[in-house]
Amino acid sequence: MNKEDIIQCGDQLFDAMRERTTLRPFTERFADITIKDAYNISLRMIDRRVETGEKIIGKKIGVTSRAVQRMLDVHQPDFGYLTDQMAFNQGEEMPISERLIQPKAEGEIAFILKKDLMGPGVTNADVLAATDCVIPCFEVVDSRIENWQIRIQDTVADNASCGLFILGDKAVNPRKVDLATCGMVVEKNGSVISTGAGAAALGSPVNCVAWLANTLGEFGIPLKAGEVILSGSLVPLEPVKAGDHMSVNIGGIGSASVRFV
């Protein structure tokens, strides 16, 4: 794709997000779109958000489960940027009907870094040594693409389908919990709807953070101390609407809950 197309697509995504409208998949409109083009589109979209005053506070890793990788026919995750305008705290209502288009919630483990991580060559031990704490988290993903009809390039371009997220208020030292076997229970409107465990995301959430550090390292970009890293869903995505409430409980870490309005 040429530079004008990339800028135009990034702008279209930015407008779609603000106006809560959807776009036809880019993969239908540009047969030759590469994953690199898609990341460039996402950078344009995020630049537009930063221009309006949003502040980048971290990153998210997506496409970490085998089920989603199979659906998109890829063998690697993707990533997007988190801004302060996406973040909510335990106890706050999440205004999905104002902010999102076709939201789906997923339970995750958030990592808060205390040291920079710069790939390549970042190992799981490096990730654990650089992690200040892990926190239970709901990410509410959203797609600016019609009916979630996404291929990998579409979701990458759309900032890894990032929507909003909410962090619980229990922060745990990663040395105190086995992140691969820790269990996750997700409840919606009072019923258990899914369970999972850390290994659902690339074998371990730690693997996901290492993958991100190494992938960004190729472009000379570090994961920075203080950043929030959402490590990928451990359960299937759940569509949500205003009026729903959900909680996630992670063994050895704690819980987070959210009310959607």
């Binding site: 085998r66 691969a180 076997t181 820790c182 269990g183 996750m184 229970v185 258990v192 369970t195 999972g196 465990a197 850390g198 290994a199 659902a200 074998g203 451990l234 409980n249 992670i250 063994g251 050895g252």
Partner: peptide, 27 residues
């Protein structure tokens, strides 16, 4: 133990095939 959130990871021939937590059993 927190039996409700206790996680399990099943590997077959070295590959993770299933994950879950205690609450999958009748809550």
């Amino acid at each position: 133990l927190d039996l409700k959130s206790l996680g399990v990871v099943m590997e077959v021939n070295g590959e993770v095939v299933e994950v879950g937590a205690g609450a999958a059993v009748l809550g």
